[in-house]
Amino acid sequence: MIEVRNMAFSYRRKQVLRDVSFVVSPGEIVSVVGANGAGKTTLLRVLATLAVPDSGTVMVDGQDALARPLRYRRQMGYLPERPALYEDMTVKEYLRYRAALKGEPVKRIRRRVNEAADLCQVSHLLRTPIGSLSAGLSKRVALADALLLRPRVLLLDDFLSDLDTAMRDAAGEVLSNAAAFSSVIVTGHEIDDFARWTTRFLVLRDGVIASSVDATGIDVAELRERVDAVIGGDER
């Protein structure tokens, strides 16, 4: 479980996040949506320890994550908004490299790589050089990287961009599987796609969580309407 309390973040003179608090339980897939510049990416970068908050805490299973960042990063998988991979490597080499880097024992690396590749549907690409992959396929590889060690917190920034329709459709299954061991936080603008598998929407407006919308058991159209209403109707 990840619990964010009173998080604030400012960059230069601009207050990007203000008093952000929420909890994501294991098995939950939370979609953070909002207009451009609302602070979605910043929120995930702070949670990925790539930026330092002005104030607030991040608790993972009751432990202060920011106080012990190394331990926290072992439990966290992060997919950046624009993942950059090593283009000279094949997919398999890359995933093996990442698994080794994250400290996975050598004898388990192969299994982890195969699991993650299967999960993200890139098994057939394992011998393909990353440089020859499309943006969408690269994103899948990056997602496999984030899922490699079955993290307890999974942070996916702008997850669905660059993915084709088939993969978007499959994303729900991927994330549902991931949610079996993770608390998943996703950002993006694809509310319709999110609505199919997300458990809750957090609507971010001007750095503040303006609304938390429970998505279970609600029609997609209604959900979109409610979320759009909070965002301000300018997001589609």
Partner: peptide, 14 residues
């Protein structure tokens, strides 16, 4: 420059 540093820094490596 390529942005790969995010992937490096988000891993549990000193």
């Amino acid at each position: 420059m390529t942005g790969r540093v995010d992937a490096l820094l988000s891993a549990a490596v000193r």
